[in-house]
């Protein structure tokens, strides 16, 4: 099962993918993970573009991928069932034991190379991690496993030294630095890229705080409020903040 839906916010179909520093780092560790069958970890606060970056990279990759959303505190059986459902497109039969399902899953993962992406990996608990590690360790060649999650993911995985020892690469997503903000927005969309830099820094300081998702919202709402104006101006920026800026 691949990831469903557009990578961008609804209404932003005309924007492209910006090859940010974090996306390039993710690309590098993902390539190594695919080549060597490694586990990698991509984590950071919400809205920094982790999911978008990983989704873009695995969708463009020649190796097929499996995208699974991790439920809160998944049991070992849930981990296996979700992965099997992702591969086979249906739930396993009711009579199948965890033992049988695990063996079948390992066979399927060995049969066809896949990039396995587990999103919201911060939801894992010890028992789920143990099951995941067991499946990874049993797989004949190892498979590329991408754990994507919030800032706490590194702590959750780190709390399990056995899995943590097997993580070959980590990418920590952080907010866009001031030094890269204007350059990134210019690549993102001229509506923001051609705006007055002073206005951009002002908006960033007040609300956006280097978070890509917030800049996407500003782009979407700004264009909608301005009725098609080519560049973000101060008046529209104020209106946008009044609408979505949480009082900023």
């Amino acid at each position: 099962m691949t990831r469903r839906g557009s990578l961008h916010l609804a209404g932003l179909d005309d924007v492209g993918i910006v090859r940010t520093r974090h996306l390039r780092m993710t690309e590098k560790v993902l390539e190594s993970a695919v080549t060597h069958g490694e586990i990698i970890l991509v984590y950071g606060d919400p809205g920094l573009g982790k999911t978008l970056s990983v989704a873009h990279l695995v969708e463009a990759h020649e190796v097929p991928h499996l995208w699974v959303q991790v439920a809160p505190k998944p049991s070992p059986k849930e981990v296996v069932v979700q992965l099997l459902k992702g591969i086979e497109g249906k739930f396993p039969s009711r009579g199948e034991t965890l033992y049988e399902m695990s063996d079948r899953l390992i066979e399927l993962l060995d049969d066809q190379p896949r990039i396995v992406v587990l999103d919201e990996a911060q939801n894992f608990t010890k028992v789920g991690i143990d099951q995941l590690r067991y499946i990874y360790d049993r797989s004949a060649a190892g498979f590329p496993l991408v754990l994507v999650g919030g800032a706490s993911t590194n702590r959750v995985i780190g709390a399990d030294p056995q899995l943590s020892d097997r993580v070959a690469g980590r990418v920590a997503f952080r907010p866009l630095a001031d030094t890269e903000l204007i350059g990134v927005l210019r690549q993102y969309h001229p509506y923001l890229g051609d705006a007055d830099p002073g206005l951009i820094f002002d908006l960033n300081g007040k609300w956006a705080r280097g978070m890509f998702r917030r800049w996407s919202k500003i782009l979407k709402e700004g264009r909608s409020l301005a009725g098609g104006a080519g560049v973000l101006d101060e008046k529209t920026a104020r209106a946008v903040l009044a609408k979505i800026g949480d009082g900023a």
Binding site: H36, G37, E38, I39, P76, Y99, S102, V127, D130, Q131, Y134, Y136, D137, R138, A140, G142, Q162, D165, R166, A168
Partner: peptide, 29 residues
Amino acid sequence: YRADRRYVGFLKQLNQPEHGIVAVRIRPG
């Protein structure tokens, strides 16, 4: 033992019935 990815690879090769060795991994739970 401590195991990183490379060591996991070593452990996977331990099962060699033809040399008189059987290696099994205990399942979680």
